[in-house]
């Protein structure tokens, strides 16, 4: 009897843990696939199908270190555009990225896609995180 109860509790716990985890995973896939769609329509022309950029004209999205270091500024880059010199992937870029009138959720989706594609692995960037970052845009 005791054994049954304990194993029953264990089973419930396991299911609980499993479903929790899959909820996170589900959220990630939701963000990621929606982000993929946005990427294709708004980013891919310039940054390329594989985030390869274009020579020294358009920066690639494959520099994981740059993305990690600038994680909290990425939302602002997308929303307000980016101008001036930046250095990544051993090159200096000085073009201009146009601003995008995206909702925080869209920014979160496309960032989740970019930061988990092209060799990057940064996990889900939630719309909550984006909202906080947008408050601090310079």
């Amino acid at each position: 009897m005791k054994l049954k109860v304990i194993s029953g509790i264990c089973l419930l716990l396991a299911i609980f843990l499993y479903s929790c985890q899959s909820e996170d995973e589900l959220e990630f896939s939701r963000y990621y696939s929606a982000g993929n769609v946005i990427y294709q329509s708004k980013c891919m022309n310039c940054h390329g199908k594989n985030g390869e950029g274009l020579s020294a004209l358009i920066p690639p999205l494959t520099d994981s270190v740059y993305l990690k270091v600038h994680k909290d500024s990425l939302s602002c880059f997308i929303k307000y555009g980016l101008k001036g010199k930046i250095t990544l992937a051993n090159k200096t870029f000085e073009g201009e990225m146009p601003a995008n009138d995206f909702a925080p959720i869209e920014i979160a989706e496309v960032l989740t896609y970019v930061t988990n594609s092209f060799g990057n692995k940064m996990g889900t960037i939630t719309s909550q995180h984006v909202g906080d970052d947008l408050q601090k845009c310079k």
Binding site: M44, N45, C46, G48, L54, S55, L57, I58, E96, P98
Partner: peptide
Amino acid sequence: TTCPSICPIMHRNML
């Protein structure tokens, strides 16, 4: 040179 839409993809292919 300041073309935001199809030029980057064109010149990626022209390369």
